[in-house]
Design a binder for these strands. Sequence first.
RNA 1: GCCCCUGUGGCGGAAUUGGUAGACGCGCCAGACUCAAAAUCUGGUUUCUGCAAGGAAGUGUCAGUUCGAGUCUGACCGGGGGCACCA
Length: 865
Amino acid sequence: MARYNFRETETNWQKRWAEAASFEVDEDPNRPKYYVLEMFPYPSGRIHMGHVRNYALGDLVARFKKAQGFNVLHPMGWDAFGLPAENAAIERGVHPAKWTRENIDAMREQLKRMGLSYDWRRELATCDPDYYRHEQKMFLDFHKHDLAYRRESWVNWDPVENTVLANEQVIDGRGWRSGAPVEKRLLSQWFLKITEYADELLTALDGLERWPDRVRLMQRNWIGKSEGARVFFDINGRDDRLEVFTTRHDTLFGASFCAIAANHPLASEIAAKNPELAEFVAKCNRLSTSEAAIETAEKEGFDTGLTAQHPFIPDLKLPIYVANFVLMEYGTGAIFGCPAHDQRDLDFARKYGLQVLPVVLPSDADAATFEVGNEAYIGDGRIFNSEFLDGMAVDDAKAEMAARLVEGNHGERTTSFRLRDWGVSRQRYWGCPVPFVHCEACGIVPVAEADLPVELPLDVDFDTPGNPLDRHPTWKHTDCPSCGKPARRETDTFDTFFESSWYFARFADAHSEQAFSPEAAKYWMPVDQYIGGIEHAVLHLLYSRFFTRALKKCGYLDVDEPFAGLMTQGMVCHETYRDMDGNWVYPSDLVRGSDGSWTDGKGRPVTTGRIEKMSKSKRNVVDPENIIDNYGADTARLFMLSDSPPERDLEWTEAGVEGAWRYINRLWRMITEPNISLPSELGDRPSSLTPAAETALKAIHKAIFSVTDSIDRFRFNSAVAQIRELTNALGELEGSKSADPGEDSAGDGDGDAWVLRFGFETLVRLIEPMTPHLAEELWHRLGHREMLTEQPWPVADPAMLVDDRVTVAVQVNGKLRGTIDVARDASEDIVRPEALALDTVQKILEGREPRRVIVVPNKIVNVVA
RNA sequence: GCCCCUGUGGCGGAAUUGGUAGACGCGCCAGACUCAAAAUCUGGUUUCUGCAAGGAAGUGUCAGUUCGAGUCUGACCGGGGGCACCA
């Protein structure tokens, strides 16, 4: 029995597709375009199963859309700047550029072995000056359009990585990569004004209908819009006023203090003259932002001695504290405290003996006796103790208070966002240089466009920690573009999210002298289907949405949203194993004993643990290359698609891979060695078919319909199941023929053979997006000379999707009692008596008339006894 | 703490969106082929009960809406995720 030789077949077709330039595309105004993009990888050196899943999903979509007649752009590139390259340089003495290039070469070869339908002409690497020169230009344009600016700011400093981290890169107060507790430092940093688009980025989420709700929700929370008011308090004995942001202006009459952040200008001013306060401020700055620290840190304050004048109660003067729980970065960096209705304020008030006056009365409480203990009341209710607000509901009181504040010039309605501007400066070497120069006379000066790119110097060393650019003997010395005098280059580089915020547009025109030609971008953008991990739900996707708008403002692009459709894939998981000493064991090291137990290869027992995301640290990884070597790319791809829906986690199992492998061989045998001889090509459909052939033909059309529908709805696992069902149906038809060859002489054999051939061709066409090499090979074995990748997607004949007779379920009181076989669309007059005539129904009715009979055509009859 | 998602056989998961629950696969059991094994093929496989035909129960739990609920509503329990001193 000839086994399927995947090695030969896969390399052969990869070569043939490349020679035929099957997946190279150009703009074609006469065809609808479809842009499929998978999140490009960081070139770590080897692909892992997460990549395999991501690209198997993307390739399925790309090939499917191509077959449906779209002009499909499907590119691949490398997110090539970043810390691991520098770490490799430090640990192994390899230059980051060399390390990165070698990794890219290795990974490109691995990807090519997967048979993915990329237009490789468009490959790009973000560390290439030809790429990053354009983003330097973009940055200059952003600066011109007031979207990039520089300011002193408190930053998250990672003491291990020696760099600044974005807020998003701080997880539970620790660096996302190093895990070290993050410190606060004041540095001069470049920022992109993402907050200018906060509202638009929020409202536009509603229009992203082909994005998962989950991701939209996460972005919504991240942007964190809250409507409220700004209240102005006069500071007694001073000319200036204290501005406070609140969403609870309805509780203003319950205010008993004000508090400002340790970094608030007013705090700094007083601290300059007050060593005690200075000490308190320093203490606040030392406080780490880690979860543990926040949980345990007590609310603490320092009384400035100043008081704020309550806007509506002339003789109420609120003490102003500097408090450790007030953040400078949010709102105005100052609050008023209403202890009765805010837990933090209450904790603070109890500690410092401040008044707790309830002003919102729960509906079931009595105004005379209602008191707040150690739990603030944050629910709804009626306002009391509040003069002109008394008796109002919370929402009405907010509106009324806002109006009064405006009227008396005591405040204004305002909106606050949690989102902050994006700090893009990094004190690292392996990134895109920021194209600015520091001149003693002229200040911060942009590099002239003609002098771009500012290239990274390659002659650097990594022997000492910190930024090699800063230590380079000559690189940073240059002349001021403005006055010509000696000046110093900016030695910071961009956050690597910068590169990934526009690469999708570069793919439209990857070798352009411009960032991309406007025509090419206009044709290809936006990405129709973007596919990648949920871990990028906020950062990368939000930055890209902002970048696209910024690029539009600067005239590069004409779209608002970069990704019209988004699919977030689940993780690839695997069982974990440990030896007796608790060390993790690689699945590939396991040996199965005769009694079914596992050992680690040295005869020592191994225990099986939880199923977890594949990770190097737990060693529960399977190398895709081994799978491709042993089973072929098609098997790996098919398994990736068949077991779980894309958005859910997938458990990688050896048994599952075997199952996919078995199916591939079964399909191979079935089509290359059919039990009956097939017509050499598919002619016209024979006029008469045996009932079995007729049924099979219908099954083929139903499969076309349901597979297409499943793929359209991203139910790829269902699509695989439907393909397998069709395989089973065709196997039955084929089996019945070989078992009863006598029928052939009756003249029906031709019809059966025709249906079988039609079925095989359909099967091959349907499975091509999943197992392209196998499909292409079978297509040619069926006698075709043209490429399957150029064949159109099959279309089901609607007439073949319906049956003449249908099985209708018969229930009594909602419980299934039997089925009847009736003509499709048979009238109630026919169905009803047939249903009632069933023995099982009669037995329950015992001669009585049913109280009611519900007939749903072609579906069900429910007899109410 | 707040917000969101989720719960179906031994396992991964289907279910035309309110109409025959368990498609398809994995695993397991039995059989065929084989000296034997592997591979392959055939059949079975929700649970309980029964020799059987059959009967009963069944989609986390409890209630509700409906002729009819895996699907809709409410409460509760379990699992997962996001945010978190955000005023």
